[in-house]
Each structure stands twice: as C-alpha cells, then as structure tokens.
Amino acid sequence: MTDTTLHAPAETDSAPRARFWHDLSFWGLLPSWLLMGFALILPIAIIAAVSVATRGAHGGFAWDFNLAGYRQILWNEGWTGELEFTPQYLLIIARTFLLAGATTLICLAFAVPVAYFISRQPPGRKAILVYLVTLPFWVSMILRVYAWMIILGKDGTLPKALEFLDFPAGMSFMFNDGATLTAMVYTYMPLMVLPVFASIEKLDGTLIEASHDLYGNRWVTLRRVILPLTAPGIIAGAILVFVPSLGAVLEPSLMGGGKEMMMGTLIQLQFGGGRNWPFGAAIAMALMALVMLFLVFTALRAARREAAQ
C-alpha cells in the first residue's frame, strides 16, 4: 500500500495525463480491429472472392475463377451456351432503386413540415413531440411491417372500411410495390424526421425575418432560406433512409409477395432455396457498390458545398 511512486516528484504537470492515455490508443483499439476484422472485413473479402468463383453442383461453390455470377445479372445462358439478354434482374435492380428513392422523397416531404412545426413549439412540448417521433422506432421493425399487413390485407382494416362505404368486398392491397413502399416509408420515417429536426432547430429565425423584409414570400423563404440551411440534416436523413431502403428485405418479402423482389430478397433467395452462391455474391457486390457510390456522391456534394461557403 505504501507505494513509493506516490512520492516520486520528478513529473511535470502534463506527464501523468500523457502517460495515462498513452498506450490506451493501441490496446483500446485492438478489440474493435479484431472483432471487425473477423466479423466484417474478412467476410466481405470472402464474398468478393465468391462472386468470381464457380457455382457448385450441389449448392455452395468451387474456387475457380469465373465471371458467370456477374454475367447472369444481364444474360441468361441457354442450353447450347449462347447468351441471351434477360432484363429480369435489371428490373429488380431498377425497382430497388425506384422504391428506395421514392421512400426517401416521401419521408422527406413529411419530415420537413413536421420537423419545422415541432421546432417552433415551446421547449416542453417540443421535447414531448420529439419523444413521440422516436417512440415507434423502438417497436420491432417486423411488427411495424406486420401492422400494415393487418391494415391492407384481405379482411384488413382498410378493405373492411371501404366495404362499409359500398366498395366491393374482399379487396386486398397487399403483394405489390405500393404495399412494399407503404411499409418502407412507415418503418424509416423517424430516421428522416430526427436529423431534419436537428438541423431545422438550429436555424436562425432572424434569417427568415430578413427574407421576409426583403419581400420574399413564404414559398421563396422556404426554398431559398430554410431548405438550403437545413441541407446537412436533409442529407443525413436521406443517407439514413436511402441506404437501408436499398437493402430492404422484410418489407418486400412480407408486403411485396414472391414476385415483386428487391435486391435484398434476391440475394437472400440465392443463399436459401435458389442456391446460387456466386450469383448471390455478385448481386451483393452490386448492391454494395450502389451504396458506396451514393455515399461517395453525397460526401463529395457536402465537401463542395462546404468549400463554396
């Protein structure tokens, strides 16, 4: 207990602190590098390799270099080996892009006015409203999708309500892209509202007044003052919604039915019943490339915006 170092005086003021944090930098980061190296970087390297491997006869794959996985995205190989252009997978990629884009835009269209309204409330009510936006997000995603199955499905709330209004009985709104989109907008909405709110709240109100003094009407003020100044929040929200939308699996597999696939469900299928691992890996690489392109694009835009200011 009577530690002699306790009385060692030869340290300058900053020395204890410098020593304190010194080797933390190595040992502190080692566990995250080990975990991410094993459970993330290694698997991604392997899936990149599998995407150029050869499909095994009974599922799985063999380590022979082969671009068939990528080729299959656009061309189907006939019995005699001739290649025929087949748009079916291209259509799935296009649908994925359109649904993810539509989800982002619809979320944005709701998020901006709602976030603006909340930001103008007195502090107490503002905190409660933010809490109410966050709350549904804590409910399991699968249950939030399931809720829409009950509402839109056969014998669901909406068809029953329409039947009451003399519409034909037995209508169902399930198993199409609209149903998938409805569930996607609902599940990702809080991810858009919260960052947009964080930006709008920081907005300097005197700028809106200045715009008005310079004869800008509400629409001009919205377009030229409010939206540009909330751009960081809008971009953050767009990333938070668009990226998981591109990889959506639950919504298309529950709401879209078997035929209306997105890239996520297509990938999953290749590792389940369909069992074409190199093709699934190739689609996965394509999805990852799309996400990376989008992230790089937004990062560049943000950098250019910052440079311009």
């Binding site: 991604i44 591109l246 990938i267 290749q270």
Partner: peptide, 12 residues
C-alpha cells in the same frame, strides 16, 4: 454496409 450483404458474407 447494407445488412443483407454483411449477413450473407458472414454466412459464407
């Protein structure tokens, strides 16, 4: 990363 990509990669 899209979760589905990480999930199938981990499965492999």
């Amino acid at each position: 990363l899209p979760e589905i990509v990480l999930a199938v990669a981990t499965l492999i």
